[in-house]
Design a protein around this nucleic acid. Structure first.
Lengths: 235, 235
DNA sequence: GACTTAAGGTCAATGGCGTTGGCATAAGGA
DNA sequence: TCCTTATGCCAACGCCATTGACCTTAAGTC
């Protein structure tokens, strides 16, 4: 039987650790985010987190059921950060685009955290709020429920998928990242036209474009298609 | 100084292990794939792999520089499998769709392996062949080079991103997977309409749809947009 | 202010992990 | 048949997450 975790809002006794710091879910998540940035996506360990908090590693289990539970909390914090201060304009396409880019950008600011959380469903408050907002944009725009759900699904998963993919690149050890970038200038740019004619003719464009995220392009294409569907619905 | 790894083609002495099995790169990769399927994406460990091969874990370092090197070899095996036997029909949209679905499907057949390798760039033969094929489809369809590169970028990264995302879900420890799936039937389906009206009205549809991959939908929307662009070019 | 209670700390231990250096032995060329 | 060395094994190092037992002290009650 694992020890019960007291929910954050029920906590009363905030006993300081040996060294005087007072713990909280918020402080732990923030510290974890900082550690992920500093030590990489594999650098978040209970031992190191305890060290950074001046607390015993086992103390974390008073706040989270385990490292996985902590991971979900980190992900929800990222989503909350993404939409903090956002207000819809009422123009569905611009709003959807802004939400997507905001979420993607928030993950890019914490790529090491994004790698761990982008594919998880936490069901926590910020995640629910984001989903509600996206569905509301689509329904208000005039999409019937089934179409709204379909576009919502494609939109959300495209955004999260690109967040995970782009984060994985950014989170690579810098040596590996440079090696990947060099790939387009070395391997791809030097392929002979006899064996790989299409890559050869596109090499210069590839070398510049492949270093950036395809998410804005993919998002716009998705919104193009959604817009066309909305036209059909309105007829 | 790490011990040197003898390349596979230079191996001559195939000394059997204590129990008589004769090792090879191929055998190790195949065994690793089987272990990933059986024990999950976190279940591939040097110790277990050694156990499955009836060899000491340290023996693996005679074949790969480390576990990371082994995962790259596994990824290469996956890519080879994805394109084996594919032939284009000449109809650009159908061909692009087929390539995307094939790559996605290959990763889905080995989700635990995919999650380890989907976001790695190899620059190896099979990857180059796939890129050449996609560019060829687009150019032959009539896309000018810059447009072809843009659509190629969105197409390839969308496919890889969804492969990584969907594999990550499929590869979750079964307990976490069930928890994520249950989320749509429990948390989301029970949200009161007062606080989350849009989720509430969509809950039944969400509960069924969110358990499937959005990739086919997203892919079709991307191809819709590409098709519209092609119309513009032709005018 | 003193008493009680249990939340929230600490400590020590368990059984995993990747990786390495030293050593032994048999494969295969001479 | 003999030698060399590739390729296997072993033992050990320092990580890791997690748990159960224990202790301390903040908060609530009177």
């Amino acid at each position: 039987m694992p020890k019960p975790v007291v929910p954050e809002e029920k906590r009363r006794r905030r006993r300081p650790t040996k060294s005087g710091t007072v713990l909280s879910e918020q402080l732990i998540v923030d510290t974890a985010l900082r550690m992920l940035r500093e030590h990489g996506s594999a650098g978040l360990t209970a031992r190191r987190l305890g060290l950074a908090l001046d607390a015993d590693p086992s103390t974390l289990y008073r706040y989270f059921r385990g490292m996985d539970d902590l991971t979900l909390a980190i992900g929800d914090a990222l989503i909350g950060q993404a939409l903090r201060g956002w207000v819809p304009t009422g123009e569905w396409r611009a709003d959807l685009r802004a939400v997507g880019l905001r979420i993607h950008a928030a993950y890019m600011e914490h790529p090491q955290a994004a790698v761990l959380t982008a594919s998880r469903v936490s069901g926590r408050a910020h995640e629910l709020a984001a989903d509600e907002a996206v569905l509301d944009i689509l329904r208000t725009a005039g999409f019937p429920v089934p179409d709204a759900v379909r576009v919502y699904h494609a939109f959300v998963d495209t955004t999260l998928a690109f967040a995970a993919l782009d984060a994985a690149s950014l989170a690579l050890p810098s040596a590996a990242l440079r090696a990947d970038e060099e790939m387009w200038r070395s391997t791809y740019a030097r392929l002979p036209a006899t064996t790989h004619p299409r890559i050869a003719e596109a090499a210069p464009l590839l070398a510049t474009r492949m270093l950036t995220s395809a998410y804005p392009t993919a998002l716009d294409m998705l919104l193009d298609s959604a817009g066309a569907q909305l036209e059909d619905v309105r007829d």
